[in-house]
Deep mutational scan, measured.
Amino acid sequence: MASQGTKRSYEQMETDGERQNATEIRASVGKMIDGIGRFYIQMCTELKLSDYEGRLIQNSLTIERMVLSAFDERRNKYLEEHPSAGKDPKKTGGPIYKRVDRKWMRELVLYDKEEIRRIWRQANNGDDATAGLTHMMIWHSNLNDTTYQRTRALVRTGMDPRMCSLMQGSTLPRRSGAAGAAVKGVGTMVMELIRMIKRGINDRNFWRGENGRKTRSAYERMCNILKGKFQTAAQRAMMDQVRESRNPGNAEIEDLIFLARSALILRGSVAHKSCLPACVYGPAVASGYDFEKEGYSLVGIDPFKLLQNSQVYSLIRPNENPAHKSQLVWMACNSAAFEDLRVLSFIRGTKVSPRGKLSTRGVQIASNENMDAMESSTLELRSRYWAIRTRSGGNTNQQRASAGQISVQPAFSVQRNLPFDKPTIMAAFTGNTEGRTSDMRAEIIRMMEGAKPEEMSFQGRGVFELSDERAANPIVPSFDMSNEGSYFFGDNAEEYDN
């Protein structure tokens, strides 16, 4: 993207840094990872977990959730003011799984939030270390993106479920800051804005008074975040219109849905970061690795190297396929839920299948599930090659597409044709070009129609051997075009429920 120079890199967003050079960025990201790792080690000690239990991804998720809940100030305040039966607002906890007599047992633990905050700050040299908290939120978000298709949420806001490739980060909490905003897809931002506008339509006082002023500035800020994701002048001009509207209503909703559809071809720039579970960072720190000293990046080879040398386990339900569970977590670790499966298959070195073909449910185990038949197995999170994460949407291309997802959002900077089903997408653009945004709409449609099938995206960008740390010898991959490109292809993934 041309304006790259004016933006802070995501590592800076990730670490609240002012302008830093590459070495400083690597050190501050490393410091953040160190903090998460030290916190995780301490929690495993508190909970008396064995090494194996500490490497269980379900335990990692519970521990991450506990610290996120302990620092969720708004919710904590709300819980104190609106006490609900049987919930102690000062405590947080969740299921911890232990191996007892050759069987997995679930144990519900409860801790004072104050105590968890103390352990977290102690692991982070006394700081609140917001960057580390956001990092864990993005890992949870990436896992949700890989596990669930947001059909219901899309339909509720009037969008087409086939636009799911635009929904990265749709389950990120509001408090995820600049680093969170960077990884949100165009569809996620559109959905947040539509929800806001709908509230304004239904509630006369939404934009009024002292609160209304705050609401208005939040609305304009979200519009600017979305505008910054678009790469064409016409899309940005249309966002200006939406932002400046005196009284946002149905016309703005129409414009936003139009823009979301246009992003299936004229893709937005959305950041991709490899955020790993805390149970990967903990053992690495415990083994003596100093992330701050060595430096770390979320968008280069580092996460690949770390996963190459990590042992992570997962509980497996009786009829689940461990290899499929591994694929789910591998995609989440690489922030690749909406990437082209052919690119992923090449990088991973084994075939990556669409969601609907995987015999696996989510990673988390519900409290009512029976533990008797639970097994555990090693997650295979290694890769054959590594590639640089991208934040450009890439230019655009036609490809055989599917009944489910009709476009992709690249996660890796790797040369390819970008699949999208042009006739299906263009069919949504018939007729409606009147109104105050008509010239911009016409211009956007013209650009979409001009998108050429034979153009290559990320020209000359390749993948790298894991021994090639400096990215000196790019390998331009070859793809098996007979395979499906979309992950949520004609899909039956479970729906995400809060």
Rank of each mutant, 00 (worst) to 15 (best):
Y97K: 05
A233F: 13
E254A: 07
N498R: 15
Y40M: 10
Q405L: 02
A472T: 15
M440P: 01
G228W: 13
S392L: 13
V190I: 14
G86W: 06
A70P: 01
E81N: 06
C275K: 10
E443A: 06
M189Y: 12
P453K: 02
T92L: 04
I41V: 04
A178T: 13
A179M: 10
G435Y: 11
R26Q: 08
G30R: 04
G209A: 13
N370D: 09
R199V: 09
F420Y: 06
M66D: 10
D480I: 09
A332G: 12
I33D: 10
P161M: 06
F206A: 00
M222G: 12
R204V: 12
A233I: 03
G485V: 05
G35Q: 07
R8Y: 11
I406V: 08
S413M: 10
M32Q: 10
G132L: 08
R19P: 12
I116N: 06
S345A: 15
R355P: 10
R236Q: 04
Q311M: 03
S28G: 01
S467R: 00
I347F: 04
N492C: 12
E494R: 13
Q42R: 05
M426K: 04
R246I: 13
L172Y: 10
D491K: 06
Y281I: 07
Q311H: 12
E53T: 02
E443Q: 03
Q42F: 12
S326F: 11
Q398A: 15
Q12T: 01
T188R: 13
V363Y: 15
N309C: 04
Q308S: 15
G295H: 10
F230D: 10
A471E: 06
P322G: 03
M448H: 12
S438V: 01
F420T: 01
E294L: 02
S165H: 10
Q42G: 00
S245T: 15
G180P: 10
I445V: 01
Q4N: 01
H272K: 09
T134H: 07
R246P: 01
Y78E: 12
S314W: 12
T92A: 09
H324N: 02
Y296K: 12
L49D: 14
M66N: 14
N59P: 02
F258C: 14
S377F: 12
F230A: 10
E24G: 12
T437A: 14
D302S: 03
D203F: 10
